[in-house]
Write a protein that binds this DNA or RNA. Structure first.
Lengths: 153, 153
DNA sequence: ACAACAATGTACAAGGTTGAACAAAATTCC
DNA sequence: GGAATTTTGTTCAACCTTGTACATTGTTGT
């Protein structure tokens, strides 16, 4: 009666999660294909969008927002600076940090990229109602908070 | 009136998607931490679970199921074979393909790993009802199908 | 003021992922 | 049957990501 020896794929929450993971993967690949014309990849887009929204972020701030390591930023940002998309200027009050800004080119590229991203997202979610999407967001935010509260921080 | 110049973060579907992506990322990191004790990472777990469920898969089959490139399998599987988790045996009817099987050790490891995975998933989704999870799965499967039908294939 | 501690960014090595080019084997089409 | 095409797996170079160790700079506690 206590049937604890169930296969994962019979487990409802497991199946749900697999669906989420697959959707995420497929979505990222689609996005990657679409923004390839701008010669950037999803990681760069994430950076650009965040700098577009929050000017003057620190590398550390950015890493935290993106949930990646600091070293990741140290690898990606210098490229993007060389490419003229962003600028990194030292803070005078704290000489450890580098504050990040979009250049004119970076801002223009970001706007193009965001349009593409929205197009991809809308195209993918067109088969779902807005209510469904909001409900999904709600569940996801609760999940993220749960995990971050436990192991993260 | 035709306010098409909206910021992405004011776009409901965009916000929804960001929530999904973040949850996915956080989840993968949590899973990675938990299965690190078994000395495998999420990609290996995906492989193991699929071989556990579908014996005798081809490398190509596996790559398709995991939505990754063939070369990825060519990089990961030989390691796992050397480690004694899987065996790759040539098909007699088609001498191009290698059919994949779990070894005894591989099967045992997979069972341990799947228990951990279920624990992580349940822990993450405990704050949502089963109905919500199923609804999420439904939306996600529709999204995946939409994208795969369009660009994929 | 000074020592201990913490935070920020970097360098580096290791590993996962990809796409393109390639060899071997199977299939298709005259 | 034999040439052209397709499929499968591998190799390789390039890139993203991570964790660790490190130097620099701030902060805390005494």
């Amino acid at each position: 009666m206590n049937e604890t020896r169930q296969f994962p794929w019979d487990h409802p929450r497991f199946k749900s999660w697999i669906a989420v993971a697959r959707a995420c993967q497929v979505m990222n690949q689609a996005l990657g294909r679409e923004i390839a014309s701008l010669d950037i990849k999803p990681p760069h887009l994430d950076i650009l969008v965040n700098l577009y929204r929050f000017e003057g972020l620190t590398q550390q701030d950015l890493a935290r927002k993106l949930l990646v390591g600091r070293s990741n930023m140290s690898m990606l940002l210098p490229q993007m600076e060389k490419r003229g998309l962003i600028s990194r200027q030292g803070d005078e009050n704290d000489r450890r940090v580098l504050r990040l800004y979009l250049t004119e080119d970076g801002r223009a590229l970001t706007e193009k990229a965001m349009q593409i991203q929205i197009k991809v997202i809308d195209g993918m979610m067109e088969s779902s109602t807005l209510e469904e999407c909001m409900s999904v967001a709600d569940v996801m935010e609760r999940m993220t908070a749960t995990v971050l509260r436990r192991d993260g921080r």
